[in-house]
Computed example of a mutant assay.
Amino acid sequence: MLRIGLTGGIAAGKSLVAARLQERGAVLIDADRLAREVVAPGTDGLAAVVDAFGSGVLAGDGSLDRPALGAVVFGDDGARATLNGIIHPRVRAEAARRIAAAPHDAVVVQDIPLLVETGQAEAFMLVIVVQAPAEARVRRMIEQRGMSAEDARARMAAQASDAERAAVADVLLTNDGSVDALTDAVDRFWDERIGPFEAALLAGRPGERGNARARGADAGWSPDDGVLARAAARIRRSGGDAVGAVEVTAGDGVPDLVVSPGSTAGGAAGNDDDALTAEASTGDALAGAVTAAGYPPVPGSDGLHAAADPAQPVVVRIRRGDRTP
């Protein structure tokens, strides 16, 4: 399964990208839609909102009065944090249920407006950010949502900045042209990157460029600091306490990252046989974490992994015990 995070500022065009990815075959999980569902009438989520903010946030039919709730929390950091504490855990639980129900070979796209603000980027093998010029976004909010220019800019200011979103992006889609141009860009991305990425994951092998680079061939690419930082964060998130240090190696050679065991990997060893067993267990745990983050093993190698992503063939080496194979 290839899990992709999709985000973008308000009125940037993220919904159009999400719809096109779904048309191409992705399983789409829309966080905004889930956020509405978890506070639908009769849910414990709605009950929690009423407990926190009072019955004044209910409409006459017993449903959530979103404008009334918005008036309460907008501009009040404490109230917004309370609301997020009610909504976000329920949204994540429902998203996890839907991911578990998806086919093993699915491309799952999670449309999360606040992906950056909630620190979820490293949970995905790939992050897509949709951006658009600020004035174009303001114009869309005025024309399509009936907002004033002042309100539109306030909504934009309350979200992460373009620079903050770009820092977590593996792919930046700029929506500064026609709908057809953006749709064509999504199609190219699906054909040239998502398709090969998913195929490599299903085969349990790195992408062609990652495999070649791990074997010393010239892949025509060297990772920059941002790519390596995102790869390291994904591996740490995947492995949890089983992963210790994730070190960036010097220079343009391979591997790019070396992963060491953490405090919970392996175990106490009473003799040489126990030590070998513990080392093997540690290596297996690390290999599983690295693979789950999107970096499958290089066939025939001892401890080398490389990215399934064809555009970012990062090479990772697993350190086993006191040695680096």
Rank of each mutant, 00 (worst) to 15 (best):
V49A: 04
A275F: 13
D111S: 14
A158M: 07
E192Y: 00
P89V: 08
P255V: 07
D273M: 11
L173F: 03
F74K: 09
E208F: 03
D77R: 12
T291F: 15
A280V: 07
L28Q: 01
V116E: 10
V254E: 14
I86S: 10
L228M: 15
R320N: 01
S263N: 13
A289M: 09
S161Y: 15
T43Q: 04
R36Q: 13
S63L: 08
A101W: 04
R205Y: 06
Q159N: 07
A199C: 03
V315Q: 15
P313S: 12
S238D: 06
G267H: 10
V17K: 02
Q120A: 04
G62T: 13
V109W: 05
I29K: 01
G294W: 11
A293D: 11
L257R: 13
A242P: 09
P206K: 06
L126I: 03
L6T: 00
R236N: 03
I4W: 00
A102R: 02
I4N: 00
G75D: 10
I4S: 00
A121F: 09
T249G: 12
R80C: 06
F74D: 10
I10T: 01
R36M: 08
P325G: 11
A166E: 06
E122S: 09
A40E: 07
A269H: 01
N271H: 12
L257K: 08
V27L: 01
A265S: 05
A278Q: 11
R215H: 14
G119E: 12
I86Y: 14
P313A: 10
V73E: 02
D241S: 14
I29N: 05
R97I: 00
V38C: 01
V50D: 02
A48M: 02
V49N: 05
M141E: 05
G8S: 00
V107K: 00
R36L: 08
A47C: 05
V73M: 05
L202Y: 07
A169E: 09
R90Q: 15
G226E: 11
D322F: 15
